[in-house]
């Protein structure tokens, strides 16, 4: 059991990295990743929302959707968005410091495809409650890792002499491609063992 959970975690963190292998959450990856500090906080907020989503998805799957599977998409979207909103209000009341640290990112993340992605993938793979949470931790951690790496690289590229047409998204995408290639190497880590 423990080994299985570890496998789920590592797989979501490195091998099937949400950003670099599944292309989920690319918008913040390209948009917000120009400062290390912001990237870090966005990543943390991401992990947080993902865990809540995994919980919500599990509850919906077990209690509601066995009766009406065709409502899956609509109910996921609505429940996730409102849960995050609710949790945001709760945090604001009980822990202003945490609220300040997560800041604007919390509501923004709700519309991120990675969040719906984690609910859908966890459902497709038939994960239970604990597996779902571990999966969310791994996926969120993987996104944070990708964001922070990208932010670090972009801080470096700012001082480089780059042709004008290359600046901005084009460069980010090519950097992301190289990062993604590097992450593909992790796939060999387990098949060899």
């Amino acid at each position: 059991m423990a080994q299985e959970l570890l496998w789920i975690f590592i797989s979501a963190l490195l091998i099937n990295n949400f950003t670099l292998a599944y292309f989920l959450g690319i918008c913040p990856f390209l948009g917000v990743s120009n400062k290390l500090d912001t990237a870090m906080r966005l990543g943390l907020a991401n992990i947080f929302v993902m865990i809540i989503t995994a919980l919500a998805a599990w509850a919906l799957n077990t209690f509601v959707l066995i009766y009406a599977p065709y409502l899956r998409l609509i109910s996921f979207i609505i429940v996730i968005a409102s849960t995050v909103q609710f949790v945001e209000m709760a945090i604001k009341k009980w822990s202003p410091e945490l609220f300040k640290a997560l800041g604007i990112f919390l509501p923004l993340i709700t519309t991120n495809c990675a969040i719906l992605g984690i609910a859908l993938f966890a459902t497709n793979k038939g994960y239970g409650l604990i597996e779902g949470i571990v999966y969310a931790l791994g996926a969120g951690g993987g996104m944070t890792l990708a964001l922070v790496l990208m932010a670090g690289i972009r801080e470096e590229t700012r001082v480089l002499d780059i042709p004008d047409v290359m600046k901005g998204t084009a460069l980010s995408l090519i950097v992301a491609g190289i990062l993604s290639m590097a992450f593909m190497g992790f796939a060999g880590m387990f098949s060899a063992a």
Binding site: F23, A170, G177, M181
Partner: peptide, 13 residues
Amino acid sequence: PPGGFFTLGFLLL
């Protein structure tokens, strides 16, 4: 996956 990033990057260019 990397091919997706590369292709879009170069097309944008």
